[in-house]
Amino acid sequence: MKIDQLKSRIESSVNLDFGGIFSESIELFKKVWVQGLVTFLIMMACIMPFYLIIYIPMFAAGFNDPQSFESDQPPVWFAVLMIVFMPIFLLAVMTISNGLMAAFYRICKLKDKEEMGKDDYFRFLKGENLKKSFVLGLYATGLTFLGMLACGIGVIYVMVPVSLFPVFLAFRQDLTAAEIVKASFALGNKNWLVIFGLLLVCGFLANLGVIACYIGLFFTAMFGKIPLYFVYKNSLGFDADEQHEQPILEA
């Protein structure tokens, strides 16, 4: 089975170098910051309607009954809304994020290897790729809730393999969603500390954009995601994966 072969390659791969990946990420960011900005803006535009679904009823209720949110306990209808809608909201965010991030990583590869190709930001949000992004969103949502049940500690653990979902989605389109999850856990577990450290440090640096009146965050936010591209590249490479890129099949 291809997943067994892939897991064997992961196990036999070299240990990742934190400093090397960090330096490579800085250099690649100089090439893809525009595409990162576009990806971030598209992501915000796609997620914004779901925020409105939450906040519009709150504003309407507060306008009609200003005292409804003054007590220590929120209104029953609001608690029910959050319980019902939050899983849907998280699933939508995960699905959109998986698709857009996979497209961004594909663009990173084009720029890194100086290949010709179209900056197709919605490549993984249509056809069969959308279905796979959705299923991965289900996995990510379920794993996140399971992590929360473990007093939140589990969330810290699963954030590493879950963050690798879009990378495998981008470069191993021959894998099913379940196989992507297995491969992500295999790679994440092998290099958990290095990947977690990269996410932590680069994520912190990416958020320094808030210093520029928060506008800078739009330009720097995607820097925190670039190390995952090099995690995949330095562990598995691309030569054997070129054959796995498949045309998009419309639903």
Score class of each variant (00 low, 15 high):
residue 29 F to M: 03
residue 16 L to M: 05
residue 24 E to H: 01
residue 17 D to M: 01
residue 184 S to V: 00
residue 216 G to Y: 02
residue 71 S to T: 15
residue 23 S to N: 12
residue 90 L to W: 02
residue 100 L to C: 05
residue 17 D to G: 02
residue 194 V to G: 15
residue 93 V to A: 13
residue 150 A to K: 07
residue 243 Q to D: 12
residue 85 F to W: 09
residue 4 D to L: 14
residue 86 M to H: 05
residue 210 V to Y: 11
residue 228 L to I: 10
residue 146 L to V: 11
residue 141 T to C: 13
residue 150 A to C: 14
residue 194 V to R: 13
residue 182 K to Y: 03
residue 95 T to C: 06
residue 133 S to T: 02
residue 192 W to P: 03
residue 10 I to S: 01
residue 123 R to L: 14
residue 185 F to C: 03
residue 203 G to N: 07
residue 99 G to T: 01
residue 166 P to C: 07
residue 223 F to E: 05
residue 127 G to W: 02
residue 157 Y to I: 14
residue 20 G to H: 02
residue 43 M to L: 10
residue 28 L to D: 01
residue 243 Q to W: 09
residue 160 V to D: 05
residue 22 F to L: 14
residue 139 Y to T: 05
residue 52 L to N: 08
residue 52 L to Q: 13
residue 20 G to A: 05
residue 172 R to K: 14
residue 153 I to P: 10
residue 193 L to H: 07
residue 37 L to H: 07
residue 182 K to I: 10
residue 64 N to L: 15
residue 16 L to F: 04
residue 236 L to F: 08
residue 230 F to M: 10
residue 1 M to L: 07
residue 145 F to K: 08
residue 77 W to I: 07
residue 120 D to M: 09
residue 3 I to P: 09
residue 7 K to F: 10
residue 104 F to S: 08
residue 223 F to R: 01
residue 167 V to M: 00
residue 118 K to V: 15
residue 214 Y to W: 14
residue 23 S to F: 15
residue 29 F to D: 01
residue 125 L to M: 12
residue 22 F to K: 05
residue 35 Q to W: 09
residue 184 S to Y: 00
residue 13 S to T: 02
residue 74 P to M: 00
residue 87 P to K: 02
residue 245 E to K: 03
residue 58 M to P: 11
residue 14 V to E: 15
residue 229 Y to T: 08
residue 44 M to N: 09
residue 25 S to F: 08
residue 92 A to W: 11
residue 206 A to V: 12
residue 107 I to D: 01
residue 169 L to A: 06
residue 141 T to S: 15
residue 30 K to S: 12
residue 105 Y to F: 11
residue 197 G to Y: 06
residue 199 L to G: 09
residue 131 K to Y: 11
residue 7 K to H: 05
residue 151 C to P: 01
residue 220 T to R: 02
residue 77 W to N: 08
residue 8 S to A: 15
residue 176 T to H: 03
residue 120 D to S: 08
residue 216 G to T: 01
residue 27 E to V: 13
residue 73 Q to D: 13
residue 96 I to K: 06
residue 234 N to Q: 12
residue 78 F to C: 10
residue 182 K to N: 10
residue 45 A to V: 08
residue 159 M to D: 04
residue 152 G to R: 08
residue 15 N to M: 07
residue 209 G to N: 04
residue 41 L to Y: 14
residue 234 N to L: 06
residue 77 W to F: 10
residue 123 R to A: 13
residue 193 L to V: 14
residue 214 Y to Q: 13
residue 57 P to N: 06
residue 152 G to S: 00
residue 74 P to Y: 03
residue 65 D to F: 11
residue 235 S to P: 02
residue 141 T to A: 12
residue 174 D to Y: 05
residue 153 I to A: 15
residue 200 L to S: 10
residue 76 V to K: 11
residue 206 A to Q: 08
residue 99 G to C: 06
residue 42 I to E: 04
residue 163 S to F: 02
residue 18 F to V: 07
residue 111 K to S: 15
residue 154 G to F: 05
